[in-house]
Design a protein around this nucleic acid. Structure first.
Ligand code: FES
Ligand code: FES
Lengths: 144, 144
DNA sequence: TTTATATCGGACAAAATTCTCTTAATATAA
DNA sequence: TTATATTAAGAGAATTTTGTCCGATATAAA
């Protein structure tokens, strides 16, 4: 479904979101430990998210990553997926035809346009604040 | 969503199903041409499907691949996916935690169990006969 | 029985993804 | 100003996925 990079990216962003809620800036090392991911690889993904303006990074002592509190409720998981994996999951033909085209559909088109739409909706209507809340309450986890 | 192998496998099986409906056995070369896939790689995938008893293979002159007509309506696309990609898409945690577990869910669990279920249902209730029909009628295509 | 034709199976090659290492750039604080 | 802590960036290694090649095996027909 999602690439490994994307999974790390989502988990990392959610962890940063949780901490940003309490005005805490977090380091790469802390993030990687919290989501159980390879440190240097996680750094690459955070760079992508930083360039996509989904997270902010600060170099130097006491540096690290954070998200503007005001943006938490305005950022969706869809934006993270889009930045890392692109829109392929939502827009491409599920059987790999050169494009998804309702006029000349593949045999799975009709079944899948709904699923793709629902997937998209689900990710697009999500927001980091809600997810961070659940994390704080211990209702969900990023690691196990 | 699906691996490339799986996409080839689905398309190949659907093509074989369409031909088997008219008692035609098809060769590897014909299949690869019909679904626009690399020949030798397609052969590997057909071997998997053959071992999984989803298709039958026959060596020698006039050999090739076919599906028992009586089995067309009893074989689902889910079986193909399962044989090639396994059940990961349906059963694994979408964020890559070591297992999907409702007691200690990841932040996307609640949104995704439904989507996974729907995906599974959709694939499990499909059958090769119905799909072959649409292909025959020209309502759908395997190549473009 | 021989020959031609097709899939099977194993080894290998290429490409994409995942992951690591090292150095540079930058910001903070002493 | 200098030392230190942190991310950025690039090169490259390891792994997985995708794809190729060729000889072995089985089948059918001559
Ligand atoms: S054409 Fe294949 S999913 Fe739309
Ligand atoms: S725990 Fe992640 S999808 Fe169920």
């Amino acid at each position: 479904m999602f690439s490994k990079s994307c999974k790390y990216g989502i988990k990392a962003t959610l962890y940063i979101a949780q901490k940003s809620q309490h005005d805490e800036r977090v380091s790469l090392k802390e993030i990687a430990a919290a989501i159980n991911s390879p440190i240097a690889f996680t750094a690459k993904i955070l760079q992508i998210l930083s360039k996509a303006m989904i997270i902010n990074s600060t170099k130097g002592p006491n540096g690290g990553f954070e998200i503007d509190k005001t943006r938490l409720s305005k950022t969706s998981i869809h934006q993270i997926v889009q930045a890392i994996d692109g829109n392929h999951l939502f827009e491409d033909c599920v059987l790999g035809l050169n494009s998804c085209n309702a006029n000349e559909p593949c045999p799975m088109h009709n079944e899948f346009v709904n699923i793709q739409k629902q997937l998209m909706e689900s990710l697009a209507t999500s927001n980091l604040l809600d997810v961070a809340m659940d994390l704080n309450l211990g209702l969900t986890v990023l690691k196990r």
